[in-house]
Computed example of a mutant assay.
Amino acid sequence: MSDLIEVAELSKTFRVRRKGSGPFRRVREEVRAVDGISFTVPHGEMVGYIGPNGAGKSTTIKMLTGILTPSGGRLRVAGLDPARERTRLVRRIGVVFGQRTTLWWDLPLRDSYGLVRRMYRIPEARYRANLERCVELLDLDGLLDVPVRQLSLGQRMRGDITAALLHDPDVLYLDEPTIGLDVISKARVRGFLRELNAEQGTTVLLTTHDLTDIEQLCKRVMVIDHGGLMYDGALAGLHEAGESERTLVVDLERELPPIEGVHGARTVRTEGPRQWLAFPASASAAPIVSQIADAYPLMDLSLREPDIEDVIARMYAGE
């Protein structure tokens, strides 16, 4: 697959004024929001782009869309320079900012979509086909005649995603697309994005604080902190980088002392006949289960995967 997004040594510096020592004195400082990051994204890939507040995620997205001009480095999206060729690029990308809507506040969804069609000059047949597909998959059928201001956050978010896809973009940038949504709305949006990627081959770059979005949608994840790229690779490799652990929950026939002598695992908690054993996330649970079954009166067990959020927190802490 050819690369749709190419980023090389990309940086963005802001000049800010801060209060100085005197009552009327201001000190000018430079803040490097993005500090020399490099990566590529092939056509059809879904990538998670995660990090804490202020890490540089949104600044990167704004440079990828042409809203901000880079301070240094090289950037290409679909072969175009976003800052210099923004008018051409806008026809190739879709953008959804979770806390900002691109819809017209006082107009019904149907009228907002009609304006989008005219702005992008979408052929009528193509527009109707895309709208019908999004309306069906995102359950918007009863909302098309409702003004945007009367929609719930989850309904508006689904409406924004539809608006971003009416012109068949090559790449979709999603900034916190499930923020504030209930469980049902989140599941509907995730299912739609999986289908969109599988059937249409749309490239998706997803930034979110909801790590379940990443786990369910992305095989590749990039972690950014203080403007620098800390990790870029498979989601499974993130566990290894953060030295994460899986947990085996063991139910014995009766209460016993903590389980010992199991190679590759250690007991971290006991509560009556139930015990919790931790082992590296990269290791297999099968030999550990076999050792416990041979030496202890085993009744039941379950396996808990590591919490990605804890893994990233340990990476941020320098562990």
Score class of each variant (00 low, 15 high):
P257G: 02
V204Y: 08
P169W: 02
A163I: 03
P169K: 03
M222A: 05
V148T: 02
P280N: 02
A285G: 10
L143I: 06
V16P: 03
G36K: 06
R32C: 06
S290E: 15
L131H: 04
L298H: 10
D145M: 00
L10A: 08
C134H: 09
V95Y: 15
P70S: 08
E199F: 06
D175V: 00
R118D: 15
R158A: 01
R128W: 01
Q216A: 13
D141V: 11
A293H: 12
R314F: 00
G54R: 12
F39L: 01
V116T: 14
G22F: 11
L235K: 11
A295N: 11
A265H: 14
V221A: 01
V189K: 02
I37Y: 08
I161N: 02
V223P: 00
D141N: 09
L229W: 03
L151E: 00
N53V: 10
R158K: 00
E9G: 13
D175I: 02
R188A: 13
L298I: 12
E245F: 10
N130D: 03
A295G: 03
R220Y: 12
E29D: 10
M63W: 03
P23H: 05
Y296S: 06
L144I: 01
E195F: 08
D81F: 04
S152A: 01
Y296F: 03
T212Y: 10
R28K: 12
D300W: 02
L205Q: 07
G36I: 13
D139G: 08
E271R: 12
G227D: 10
T247S: 08
V96Y: 14
V289G: 07
G264V: 05
R25N: 03
R92L: 14
L172P: 00
L138E: 04
Y296H: 04
E6V: 05
S71I: 07
E271H: 14
A234T: 15
